[in-house]
Design a protein around this nucleic acid. Structure first.
Length: 136
DNA sequence: ATTGCATTGCGTCAAGGAGG
DNA sequence: CCTCCTTGACGCAATGCAAT
């Protein structure tokens, strides 16, 4: 697990490593809320979309026609704001979860590619040795 | 035990994109 | 145009950890 360096206490961790924001990756999301899936060596991770759980007592907006007094209007505005904040709170949580999963996925991919690289270097070395002995 | 810095996670705001 | 969703950015609190 890599640790964030101080200059990026806020914002995109990946920008420190890559110079890019994570949403700027060359493989664009295939759909909103999706991130580039790993290819080849590893399974593409899937984004689950949990059903939003509104707390009990949160009801959907009343039709505007039923509101009259300024007090009712103010209450409606407050209720709408609280609902918006609640939804955004959950959206932010989900967004962070996906981001962590994405970073983990990239870290796995780095590990796989490093192993592949090592194997190929060893293979090349073996072939070179073979070639040298034949040439003698 | 205390202190200071780094890291992490959260809630909120704001901007921008997508869909109706 | 309006509404909703997504996500970068910010501020804050909690926690970890090394230095003293």
């Amino acid at each position: 697990m890599y640790k964030m360096t101080k200059p990026s206490v806020h914002g995109s961790c990946l920008s420190v490593l890559t110079g890019l924001f994570w949403t700027d990756f060359s493989l664009p999301p295939t759909s909103p809320g999706d991130y580039p899936a790993a290819t080849g060596d590893m399974p593409a991770y899937q984004i689950r979309t949990p059903t939003t759980t509104l707390p009990q007592g949160v009801v959907m907006a009343a039709s505007p026609g039923t509101l009259h007094s300024p007090q009712q209007m103010a209450e409606e505005a407050t209720r709408k704001r609280e609902l918006r904040l609640l939804k955004n709170r959950e959206a932010a949580r989900e967004c962070r979860r996906k981001k962590k999963e994405y970073v983990k996925c990239l870290e796995n991919r780095v590990a796989v590619l490093e192993n592949q690289n090592k194997t190929l270097i060893e293979e090349l070395k073996a072939l070179k040795d073979l070639y040298c002995h034949k040439a003698e």
